[in-house]
Design a protein around this nucleic acid. Structure first.
Length: 423
RNA sequence: GGGGGAAUGUCCCGAGUGGCAAAGGGGGCGGACUGUAAAUCCGCUGGCGUACGCCUUCGUAGGUUCGAGUCCUACUUCCCCCA
């Protein structure tokens, strides 16, 4: 059985009938689809069910997951039922896609902790429940862990040829890079395909979505459902999220852009969007906000410094979706006060130093305490390069004691990173 | 089964004659310039110490040597040739 692939569907050549596909197309969510026309027809005929799977390798999702979360959100908004699949079982195997080597195997305890932590993010984007188009959340550990080996091989393994498996990028890449690929990892794509079939049986799920890197894994699931269940099944992937200058997105603040507030404060999340490159503003507004398209067109047409207004709209809208309107407003207010009025803002992320300790600290130690440097050496180098400012004044001597007159001050690293220190 | 190569700074690629904290890129961070943008130019990019310095790094484990990324042995993984 072969898969019809629609690559890069352009608005000129295809006019969707369903709201879902129309929105996906207009807003730039679609990279590849197994059969866009048929999927559109199905979505136009009535509510359908789709899923996206998420690993439990960390205790928070990051910005790379956000496109697919937005897709699920639109999917629900346009009248369909989304399934969030937590990879409690597949995480035990580990997806080899885009990885040079096998990662350390996570324990059950860690996986379960991560799973519980990740769950919370989704409720901000979707309505969960038991009826109609309410989203549901399932864990593939529920069925994968019960599989017996022989049974698995006979029921599912028989549908996959090694010849074909070797042709998938996730496998090919590892072989080309001369890195070992364990048999454990080699099985990952079968696990994911099994998920699709299981969700098809349990919930009549006919669509799996994900990032473009998941294309191979998704195809396997589509084929398995078609073959075993003899029913239509579709796959839809989104483009990889990069900035216009070709870089991986989310490095603006030095680390990964986490979605959990404990990992990355709403203020820093807001800042990340605020610092979007000019050329990305329109694209990001379409993908990460729900502003009407004509409004987006107006915003992205702003020239010169005026486009900063569009970036603020983007930051407000995106932060509101994830952290809620209050957190977004607070972050925006802190940024305006700190950057545009040069005032000390109580709403900046705060570093607390015990009373008395602050004046006994070196500038180096303060930089480390503020999270601006990863080690003392790093802090010294940063200060030598003129990166550190207290209340706007450049700190010159890394070894000198901190000079702060009041009980609080604004710390700044580089152009855009600000913290409030209180003692 | 036999023979020949390869694994380098835990982000990636990649030089490396026995004296190496280890060339050079990319990426990242910072400075200048700007609009909290991009492009451009410049600096930094193992840990601890104020500093002479000390400690930890070159697939894994041993060994030779005053001294080993560099030589020897075994192991792991990958590539090529022969069977």
């Amino acid at each position: 059985m072969s898969i019809d692939t629609t690559t890069d569907p352009s608005a000129e050549t295809f006019v969707p009938k369903s709201d879902f596909i129309r929105v996906m197309q207009e807003r730039g969510y679609i990279h590849q689809c197994t059969d866009l026309t048929a999927l559109d027809t199905a979505a136009a005929a009535g509510p359908i069910t789709a899923y996206v799977g998420y690993d439990c390798t960390a205790d928070s999702l990051h910005i790379g997951h956000l496109i697919s979360i937005m897709m699920l959100r639109w999917f629900q908004k346009t009248g369909h039922r989304p399934i969030v699949l937590m990879g409690g079982g597949t995480t035990k195997v580990g997806d080899p896609t885009d990885k040079d080597q096998q990662r350390p195997l996570l324990t059950d305890a860690v996986i379960n902790t991560n799973l519980a932590s990740i769950k919370r993010t989704f409720s901000a984007f979707m309505t969960f429940g038991e009826t109609g188009q309410d989203a549901i959340m399932v864990n593939n550990a529920d069925w994968l862990e019960k599989l017996g080996y022989i049974e698995f091989l006979r029921d599912y393994g028989v549908h996959f040829t090694v010849n074909r498996m070797l042709s998938f990028d996730s496998v090919k890449l590892r072989l080309e890079r001369e890195q070992p690929l364990s048999f454990l990892e080699f099985n990952y794509m079968l696990m994911q395909a099994t998920d699709y079939l299981e969700l098809h049986r349990r919930h009549n799920c006919i669509l799996q979505m994900g990032g473009s890197d998941q294309w191979g894994n998704i195809i396997n699931g589509v084929e398995l459902v078609r073959r075993v269940a003899q029913k239509p099944a579709f796959g839809l992937t989104t483009p990889l999220l990069t900035t216009s200058s070709g870089q991986k997105m989310g490095k603006t603040l030095g680390g990964a852009v986490w979605l959990n507030a404990e990992r990355l404060s709403p203020y820093d999340y807001w800042q990340m969007w605020r610092n979007t490159e000019d050329a990305d503003v329109g694209r990001f507004l379409k993908l990460f906000t729900e502003l009407p398209l004509d409004e987006i067109a107006r915003l992205e047409a702003l020239g010169g410094a005026e486009i900063n207004e569009a970036k603020k709209v983007l930051a407000n809208a995106a932060t509101t979706l994830l952290h809620g309107p209050e957190a977004a407003a607070t972050a925006a207010a802190a940024a305006v006060a700190a950057f545009e009025h040069g005032r000390l803002s109580e709403d900046l992320p705060t570093v607390e130093i015990a009373a008395g300790d602050l004046s006994a600290m070196t500038n180096t130690a303060l930089m480390v305490a503020a999270g601006f440097a990863s080690s003392n050496g790093d802090a010294r180098r940063q200060i030598a390069g003129g990166a550190f400012r207290i209340n706007g004044v450049k700190v010159a001597d890394a070894n000198a004691l901190v000079e702060i007159s009041g009980s609080e001050a604004e710390l700044r690293k580089g152009n855009a990173r600000k913290r409030l220190v209180v003692s």
